[in-house]
Amino acid sequence: MPINSTADRTAGRTALTDGELSWQETALCAQTGPELFFPEPGSSTREAKFLCGICEGREACLEYALTHDERFGVWGGLSEQERYALKRGRADRR
C-alpha cells in the first residue's frame, strides 16, 4: 500500500530512489483511503486484497514491503502474517 503524499512517503527515507517508488504513482490504493489497507484488528482484508490483485504495481509493492520490513497493513496483496510467512520461507530456502 503506498503512502498518499510524496512528503509522507519520503519522510525519513532519504535512500529511496524515484524508481523504487514509481509504482506508487499508479497504484490503485493511492485512490482509496488508507483504512482499507490498515484495518482494525480482526477486520476483513478481503477488499484490500481484491484491489491489490488487480493492481499493476502489486509485485513492486510487495517487494517494497518485504525489503523495508513493513509490519502493518496489506501490501502487495498480503497481510502482515502472510508477509512474515513469505519472508520465513525465503530465508529457509537459502
Rank of each mutant, 00 (worst) to 15 (best):
R83C: 06
A11Y: 06
G76H: 07
C29N: 08
R88I: 06
P34T: 09
D8H: 09
G42Y: 13
G19R: 14
E20G: 10
R94A: 03
T45C: 04
T6N: 03
T17I: 10
H68F: 15
S5E: 01
M1D: 01
P2M: 08
N4F: 06
G73P: 07
G76Y: 06
Y84A: 09
R94G: 13
Q24A: 11
T17W: 12
G76K: 08
W75S: 01
A48M: 07
E40Y: 13
R83W: 00
A11P: 00
I3H: 02
A15E: 15
E20I: 07
A27D: 10
P34I: 03
T26R: 09
L66P: 01
S44R: 11
G89W: 11
D18F: 06
C52E: 12
A60K: 12
E63V: 07
R94C: 00
D92L: 15
Q81S: 00
Y84D: 00
R71E: 09
L36T: 14
A11L: 05
E35T: 08
P2G: 11
Q81A: 11
M1F: 03
T45E: 12
P41L: 04
V74M: 04
K49V: 11
E80Q: 05
P2R: 02
Q31P: 02
D69P: 00
C55W: 07
V74C: 03
F37N: 03
T32W: 09
L86C: 05
L78M: 10
S79I: 08
I3E: 10
G73D: 01
K49Y: 07
I54L: 09
E82T: 02
I3S: 01
G73I: 04
Q24T: 06
S43G: 07
A91V: 12
E63D: 15
L66F: 04
W75V: 00
G89Q: 13
S5V: 08
L86G: 02
C29M: 10
R13E: 13
L86R: 14
A11C: 04
G19H: 07
F37W: 15
F50D: 14
T14S: 10
G57M: 01
M1A: 12
T17K: 14
A27V: 12
Q81V: 02
L78K: 06
E63M: 14
H68K: 10
Q31V: 01
L51P: 04
G12L: 01
Y64F: 15
E82C: 03
E56K: 09
P39Y: 03
R83L: 05
I54K: 15
E35C: 05
E82A: 05
L78G: 02
L51N: 03
G12H: 02
S44C: 11
T32A: 13
V74A: 03
C52R: 07
R46Y: 13
S5T: 15
D92N: 04
L21Y: 13
R46A: 14
D69A: 11
K87L: 14
N4G: 10
F38C: 08
